[in-house]
Amino acid sequence: MSMRPTSSRVVLASLKPSTDIPRPSRTLGRGGLAWRALSPFTIVLLVILVAVAITAAQEEERTAVEPAVARKAATLILARCAVCHTTDLISQQRLPRDRWTATVEKMVHWGADLSKDEAALLVQYLSARNHPGAPDQLPSIENELAMAQPAREQGVATDGPLTGVAAKGAGLYAHNCQACHGEGAAGGAGPKLARNRILKNEGAFWETVLHGRGPMPAWGAVLSHQEIADIHAWLASR
């Protein structure tokens, strides 16, 4: 029998109503064990182990983050961390809180665009999700966000034209796109966007921004459709 399923629920449980703490009978049943086949000593041992598992699960419940916090943190990771590296690098870490704090501080020092509150939120989320006792396999941060979301994506179903506001797009561009596409959209690690032909190809533009392409992360969970339209309007005015 494995203790792992209890801790594998840390974040997922926090995103759903948390009725997932295993009970002794369920855990034993999963292991295919019959009570009468066990010696009294084994039964005592199993009861102790299960009690430990429940305590550990409750402990983790207390440190688990609220769904809204998890959503916000995962969104920030896609927008601020995935600029330089994909989220698989984050997902494979298993670190205690102090090391997460040091890691996030290092990234902010190196230019990750995170406010103090946002950095604290990331530490809270990552310490609850990617702690040393977390299971080997965790869903990707992208998948977790897709499961927890998406309030914004639902907007796709509603119809009607969007009018981009170039004046608003300038600030949104500087905050979200400039790191790769350069000041004034003149290009950098990513392509030059000023007068780029993709601006005239709405399908390609929206597809790229919403879902990412090659090394560019998906922005669908980060930017609203209105914000994307604003950025498009500003780019088109360059």
Partner: peptide, 27 residues
């Protein structure tokens, strides 16, 4: 500028040609 979301969904397939349009500078 105005963007119809239905319009961009219809033209999603054109996105396949995006690589040629943008010209990837990321290796």
């Amino acid at each position: 500028m105005t963007v119809s979301r239905r319009a961009w969904l219809k033209t999603l397939l054109q996105g396949i040609g995006v690589g040629l349009v943008v010209g990837p500078r990321f290796p």
